[in-house]
Amino acid sequence: MKSSAFKKSYTGVTVLDMPAFEWCEGTVTAVIGANGSGKSTLAKVLAGIEAPDGRSRPLTGAAVGYLPQKSYAFRMSTERNIALNGSDTERMRELMAALKLDPVAKRKAKKLSGGETAKMALARILMGSYDLLILDEPTASMDMESTLAAEKLIRDCCSRTGCALVLITHSIRQAKRIADNVLFLRNGKLTEQGPAEKILSNPAKEETRRFLEFYGA
């Protein structure tokens, strides 16, 4: 699945200049970079939440799912929130069990803790089927056990549905655990890309190396 090149500017300042890119089906592509490097903007433009400069969408004809950084809990129970995105009860049970959401299934989603809300939001987006699924820091507020369970579900979703999965993350370790490919963004530009193993252990660019050293990769 190819996305065309695009730019995104706010008040005349270009915050993202993305070249044409091919998102491989059935693989996880981790997008890493410092704050303000354009990761979330990339996610929003690909998902059609924000229009790029020129307004022509970089992806056409593809079903794109997007989980924002701060996902919204609708005013209903946890299980109804999850069921909003699909009626496959078997799949719902599977996701809720894997993320240990069963005890809070009937609880109002607005009363969930930050971590529980993140798990509910992940289960909800994984109920759908997409060609490209973009997850913006889905495990940022989860504990270790939940993070590992979420990562397993993310990988399983990718291999089960064959969707291309884009994972925006600050965790280099997470990228190492589940990503097949890595994109490194800096100041709104794609500076390095390639297989996760190569980029995360032996990056070609000095800025990528410094970033990885700082985050303890």
């Binding site: 929003k44 794109v64 924002p68 996902s71 919204y72 609708f74």
Partner: peptide, 9 residues
């Protein structure tokens, strides 16, 4: 709400 709902398609 819009981001979440639009993200869910």
């Amino acid at each position: 709400l819009r981001e979440t709902a639009k993200g869910l398609g």
